[in-house]
Each structure stands twice: as C-alpha cells, then as structure tokens.
Design a protein around this nucleic acid. Sequence first.
DNA 1: TACTAAACGAGACGGTACGTCCCGTCTTCGG
DNA 2: CCGAAGACGGGACGTACCGTCTCGTTTAGTA
Lengths: 210, 210, 210, 210
Amino acid sequence: MCSSATPRGPRTGRPRSAEADEAILEATRAALVELGWSKLTMGDVAGRAGVAKTTLYRRWANKNELVVDAVAVLFDELELPDLGSLRADIEHVVLQFASLLQRPETKTALMAVVAESTRDEPLRERIRGSIVDRQKRLVLDGRRRAQERGELPAEHDPVTVDAVDDLIFDVVAGAVVHRALVSAEPVDAAWVARLSALLVGGLGAAATVG
Amino acid sequence: MCSSATPRGPRTGRPRSAEADEAILEATRAALVELGWSKLTMGDVAGRAGVAKTTLYRRWANKNELVVDAVAVLFDELELPDLGSLRADIEHVVLQFASLLQRPETKTALMAVVAESTRDEPLRERIRGSIVDRQKRLVLDGRRRAQERGELPAEHDPVTVDAVDDLIFDVVAGAVVHRALVSAEPVDAAWVARLSALLVGGLGAAATVG
Amino acid sequence: MCSSATPRGPRTGRPRSAEADEAILEATRAALVELGWSKLTMGDVAGRAGVAKTTLYRRWANKNELVVDAVAVLFDELELPDLGSLRADIEHVVLQFASLLQRPETKTALMAVVAESTRDEPLRERIRGSIVDRQKRLVLDGRRRAQERGELPAEHDPVTVDAVDDLIFDVVAGAVVHRALVSAEPVDAAWVARLSALLVGGLGAAATVG
Amino acid sequence: MCSSATPRGPRTGRPRSAEADEAILEATRAALVELGWSKLTMGDVAGRAGVAKTTLYRRWANKNELVVDAVAVLFDELELPDLGSLRADIEHVVLQFASLLQRPETKTALMAVVAESTRDEPLRERIRGSIVDRQKRLVLDGRRRAQERGELPAEHDPVTVDAVDDLIFDVVAGAVVHRALVSAEPVDAAWVARLSALLVGGLGAAATVG
DNA sequence: TACTAAACGAGACGGTACGTCCCGTCTTCGG
DNA sequence: CCGAAGACGGGACGTACCGTCTCGTTTAGTA
C-alpha cells in the first residue's frame, strides 16, 4: 500500500512527512464522499490535505493509484468470525461486504478504478494486491473452516479446490456488486438469505464438474 | 435509446439528421475501442463522425449518456435460443454475455458508466432502460421455458418468482462481470460449466427461502 | 439606406415585408441600448423583431451594415436653423451633435463601426454615405450662410473652400467625438463656447494657408 | 501598464515570466497588423507568443485590456522637441500623431477599444492612464513652452488654463483621428498647416471665454 | 380560382472562439 | 533535500454565435 518505491540509501536531506501520507489519503476519502470519483481532482485533494500538489505527485503517479490506496484500507474491515455454520458465515460476510459498498467513497470509487484498470495493467495489479486478494482470502478461510466442520467434503484435487474457490469468489463478490451498483437494489437480509441458500445448495454440484 | 426526451408537438424547423445520430454512435464505439473510456473526448467523437461538437450536445447532455446509447445496441445481440435444457440455456447465454464483455468497447465502457451512475440518477435510469432490463428479460424467458419443460416447479407466488429472477440475474451477470473485469480471468467453458452447475443445483434451495 | 441591392426584374413571389425592415432596425437600436455593440447578436435582434434570422441575412450581410443602417436615421435629426450668427450656428450644431453622441445607441455603435471600417472598404462607403456626408452638409450650409451674412469673405478658389470645409468638419466632429468618447468629459455650454470662439477666431488664418 | 493589479504581500511561488509578458504584447501587435481587431483571437495570440492561453488570462481579463497594453507602448514614441515656435511644435506633433495612426495596429485597435470603453469603466480608466494622459502631457508642455517664449500670455487663472489645455487636446487629437479614421483622408502637410493656423489664430479668442 | 415562386418562422447544421478547469511539470523561496 | 506556493504549456470542456441549410407554411401576383 505504501507509495515510496525505492528510497535511496544515504537518506540525506529533509525526510518525507509520514503525517502527510495519512492526511492525503484521508483527504482523498473525504473528497470521494463529497464530490465522487469523476469530480475529484488532485488539486482539491492537495488543498484539503494542506499539502502542495507536488507532494501528491511525489508519492502517487496519478489519481487512480491514489484512490486505490485511499479506499483499500477500508477493505481491512472485512472479517470472518466463526458463526458455526457455512451458511451463517456466508450471510455475515455478504452483509459486511454490502455495507462496505454502501459507503459513498467505495460506491463511487470501486467501479471507477476497475473501469480504468481495463486499460492500465499496473493499476490492475495494484487493485488485485490491495483489494481483490484481501477479499479472496475470506473465501479460502470460509471454505477451509466448512471442511473442518465437515459441512463440505475434503476435496483433495488442488485444481478443483482453486477453481471452486475462484468461482465462489466471483459469484459472491460479483452478485453483491451487481445488486448494489448495477441493479441499484438493496442488499437486505432476505436477498442475502436467498443467495446463501443458492450457494450452499449448489456448491456440491459445482465441485463435481470438470 | 433515442436521445430526444420531449419532442415538441408542432414539429417545426429543420428536422434532426438521422444519419448524424448513427454516425455519432458508430464514432463513439470506434473511439472507445481505440482510446478507451477515459481518453475519449467529445471533440474527437465529433471529428470522427464528421459532425460539429454542437450536434453532439444537442442530442446528448454528456459523455456518459452518449456512451450508454452507443454501447446499448450491442446488448441487443444477446439471445436465448432453446437448447433443450435449462443448463444448456444458461451456459449459452453466459458465454454470449462473456464474449460481449471481451469486446474492448464494452469492457472499457460498462464499469465506467456504472461508476458514474452512482452519483447520477438520470444516468442510472438510462442504463437500466437501455441495458439492464434488456438483459433481465433473458432470465425471465429462461426461467419460464424451464418451467414449461418441467425442469422447475411451477411457482405460484409472484413475489418469490420475482425475487428469484432478480437473484439469478444479479448472480449470473455479476459473476461474469466480476470474473472478466475484476479478477481479469478468462470466462471459459470450464468456468461456465461450474457456474451453471452451481445455479441449477442451488435454484431449488433459493426458491424455498423467505 | 435600403438593403436590397439588385431586385430582379419580374418581381414574382411574395414581396418582402416592409414592416419587418423597420421592426428589425428598431430592434437593433433597442439591443444597442441594452447590450451595447459588442454583446449585440444577430439572433437576439431577430428575436426582438419577431423575425427569423434568415430574414435578417436576406437584407443585411452582417452586423456592421445592419447597425450602420439602424443608427444612420438618428443623424437625420441634425439641423442647422439660422440663429443669426456664425458663432451661434456653430454652438447650436455642436450641442446637437453632442446630445446625439450621448444617446447610448450612438455612443456604443459609432466608434465600433468606424473601427470595423478600417478593414472593410464597403462598410466605410456605407458609413460615408449614411452618416458622414449627412453631417458634412451642415458645415457647407453654415459656411455658405456665414458668407451671405458677410461674416466670412467670399472665397473664390474652390480648392481652398473645400479644404477649409473639410478641415472645419474634421475639427468640429473630431473634437466633439473625442471629448465625449475618449476624454469622456461633458460637452457643456462652456466647452462649446470655447470651441466656437477658437473656430471663429482661427477661421481667417486657416483660409490664408496654402 | 503592468497587468497584476494587487500583488499579494509574501511573494511566494514561482514568479511570472517577464519574457512571456513581452512576447504576448509583441504577438498581439503582430496579430493586430495581420488580422485586425475583430479577427484577433486570444488563442491566436497565445500561439504566436508560444504561450498557453491560460497564461494570457492570468495577466489580462480580456482582449480589450490586452490590446490597450499592447498598443499603449507605441504612444511613448510621441515627443515634443523644441522647434522654436508654437506653430512648428504643433505641426510636428500632429504629424507624429498622424503617422502613429497610420500604423495598422493602432488604426484598427484605437477606435475599437474606445468603442468598448463606452460600456466598460475599468477599460476607460486603463485607456486614460495608458494612452490619453500620455498624449495630454504634450499639450501641457507645448503650452508652457510657448508661454516661456512669450508667444502666449502668462495666464494666471488655473481654471482657464486647464480648460484651454483640455480644449486644445480634444481639438487636436480629435481632428487628427477623425481625419484619419472617419473621413479616411490623408493627414498631409497642407492639412496640418491649416489646422495649426486655425489653432494659433484662435487660441487667443478661446482663452478669453468664460 | 388555382398556380407559382419567393419570403417567411423555426430550428438544425458545421464551425470558430470563448473563458474555465484540471492536468502534470517547473521554478522560486524558506525551513 | 523537502515542501508550499503558484506559474507554466497543454488539452478538453460546455457554451455562445456565426452564417448557412432545410423544412413546412404563408402570401402576393399572375395565369
């Protein structure tokens, strides 16, 4: 998540302000809430952070990378407490993720940076490292826990395991994002319950394919 | 899909050129392919279309609405031929949708306009009318056909029917979009087979919730 | 002053509306008063006159010519009543001219069209015919009358006569315009009295040069 | 003549380029010569000066103020060498002024900015400070010098002195401008001789009024 | 009375310039 | 050497008018 790529050895001159970094990210989130992605400007963020534009550009190459870093930290909130059953775990994480997507800063930023990433490989990598992998880990943990509980059979073919994990991840994350941002309908308990039922009911079938 | 919201009654003055409309939309798609969403400019589109910038602004209020209209027509290609089974139908439509999302004009545009729509209600309506509802219809048709075949029980509670249709729509569309654009992994036959299996396997469970 | 250059012989079809002509010129004057020269637009004039833009362009080639025609008629007000002495005549006509230049429509338009005319020969001709010659006639009349009264000697060399007439015209018109528009100071009775004294006192000397 | 109205105290940040200032004014004069006032555009001037449009707008609020500054410097050329007599001094300065008015950049610009100034008080002030007062000084110097020579009586009433100075200024400047731009006739030696004779002959009378 | 041809209103058209906003870079000064 | 301040070249924006055009609709003077 950090910005400085290669700090030179000798470390001479005035050191960079660590406070500035956090002030900038905080200012970025505030600007996202207030203005949304497309109206957010580097100059405005600099102004809010009480920092010169030069300081921003010294740390981030462009708006996209800055926003990814500013938003990524929010995804650290996602947790997977053991609620005793696969279905409860799924429902819990889906609701968490949905409530994260309701926050104006994520709502406006997430799809925007994904859109940009279709033409910007370094950005895609940054998103993957900062956001996607962080979410995916939850799927792995949930699956492993369900296997330990015996809710799922212990699959031994690692290819199948990865394929199903990937599928579940895209289905869960995709469905929530689509529901929240594209359909623009509420991700409420009833919808989550149905989604969980679908997943739990279909998991077995999905694992027997291929 | 048309641009004129409120056509005045008397229809006086020189009528708008229908050729210009099509030239502009075509130029927009070309610019999307070549430049991507964020580098596309109104002036460039006008130039490609052999049209003055004012002519664009007379028809579309901004880049977002123009792009939605330009891309919307591509979604007309989606069809649901009867392949004999629910699962085959699902696999077919998912592959169709995936191949649509691989086209550079949709890939770069779709998430971008969705991102914008989180802060632009008219744009959201335009997307819903031009794109979302057009896709959703496929889910309805597929479900109805499966019921006629007897693959699915004839559900009589309309609330449940709608809820499941909506769920399936968000799951399918969301999973494909997420796989293609966020995970940036191929939507190949194996993945589609697993997704279809998951859906067919879980549908029954999803319908019994609520 | 009229606008139609070469009416074809047969004179068939619907004739041009004479009312429109006057409405347009009146609207032009109103727009000059309200907006000034530089903010006056053809579309606005058309709107005020209740006329289509095409109708304007059918009669006048551009804004400059339209404004000259609209303002020219105001210069018809200038008269030279016989007040019994050269000096009284001068004072009277100068005050008349000054009060004409105080009107907002002339104030804003006169210098503007003169400025345009430095790069537009047809416009210069139109100004000369519509405005300048109309004013110059007053100088000729005043001089002739003063000679009849015996206030000025009967000059017999026509070249000298013309030269002095021209000089007086430029001095009087120029001084008033400069005072009113460049210096932006009032053209009051005291100033006019001094100008008249200067002219009457210097006329004899001016006639003996060359 | 400078553009910055209120320089902030601390003088921080990168200072404005002095070279840019001169390049812009020079480019403005070149554009005036080539295109004339009405076809001169800010973008074109910026291009000629090798400068971004924003740099123009950072210094001048609009085309009018820019052109006044660009042309004002030309009026510094006007001088009043002592030629030994009032009449010779007048003839000299009038010819100087006339030749200045023949230059295409002044010819096209002067009346245009005066026309604009009838509806723009700040512009009028700028013209007065940059151009008018600079010319008026010549009248004062010439009159004082003539008094020192004994050609004119030493007038002791300051009100009369000012009034006559003002009158002479408007008469001389106005007559030359009107001859050159409105009548569009040459300001040659013969005409100047007559004008000077008129002034010298009438000055005494003008001073006795009021 | 009907025909015809021009003028009419309306408004879309290709185009130019506007003045503003933001970009990402640079230049200065002070810490 | 860092950092603020802010000017710089550049590019796109969305708007305003330009002067032209294409419609369908009057409106006279013939025929």
